[in-house]
Nucleic acid binder design. Structure first.
Lengths: 124, 124
DNA sequence: CAACTTGTATTACAGTTGTAATCCAAGCGA
DNA sequence: TCGCTTGGATTACAACTGTAATACAAGTTG
């Protein structure tokens, strides 16, 4: 199974933008980011560079402009991050976490109904 | 609500030991850790110091020996870490994560039954 | 052609983390 | 009393992160 590079908090925000739509030029990414964060353009370029270095994204060059696109899917990354989270906090076991979540979190009637249906689906 | 300090991966392992039983002297912690990791005693002492500095743990002094104990509960920390994880990966929403998990993870018949019962409980 | 603009590449710099090693003080054995 | 042992305090140091600023190169404009 392919291992995805570790993506930091700040980088993750950039990835979200690219997962949302790609390819995008650096400036397009910067514009999109500035709707959600206060980061300076230079900062975002740094993050793009780092992501490219660790091969989470790549780019094509059109004249003097780069257009970036992800090399790893959101699903892969979510799964990988979730796994390390699980490992750290719950020793890797999924169910204890779920149990804890269900106990702690607020869920509406709607949510519960929906989840129950998903469980039914799983139950084949 | 009390805010818990951020506990790093390595520190988390030490906290587990103390949550498991406390107070414990540095040496007791070190012994317990060496059953699960390869870390040198000095490393573990560093972690104990850092945890004490950030007030995740404290200690009492008996002669020249410190006995450490947690200042924050495992539940608090789990909750806090889970929240930042959720925020980072799923934008803070709990349900999308659950949905994703249920789709991705392997659950036994048993697990599913148990979860369904929990949901029934919630449903009051 | 010279200066300005614009996009990229390089460099910066402090705080955090992992992973220890060295220094120091107090009790203990010779 | 003097060095050895043991536990704690201080220091180390590189990689990773957040957050940029500065330098450079190629078009664009006057």
């Amino acid at each position: 199974m392919k291992t995805v590079p570790h993506i930091t908090d700040a980088e993750w925000e950039v990835m979200k933008v690219l997962w949302n739509e790609s390819p995008r030029t650096a400036n397009e990414v910067i514009d999109a980011m500035q709707e959600r964060t206060e980061w300076k353009p230079k900062t975002i370029r740094t993050l793009l560079n780092r992501l490219a270095q660790k091969q989470a994204i790549s780019f094509t060059q059109e004249n003097r402009v780069y257009a970036y696109f992800p090399l790893v899917s959101e699903g892969e990354c979510v799964k990988s991050e979730t796994q390390s989270f699980l490992k750290r906090i719950y020793g890797g076991a999924f169910k204890p976490m779920l149990v804890n979540f269900l106990k702690e979190e607020q869920l509406s009637e709607e949510d519960i109904k929906e989840l129950r249906e998903m469980l039914d689906g799983k139950n084949k």
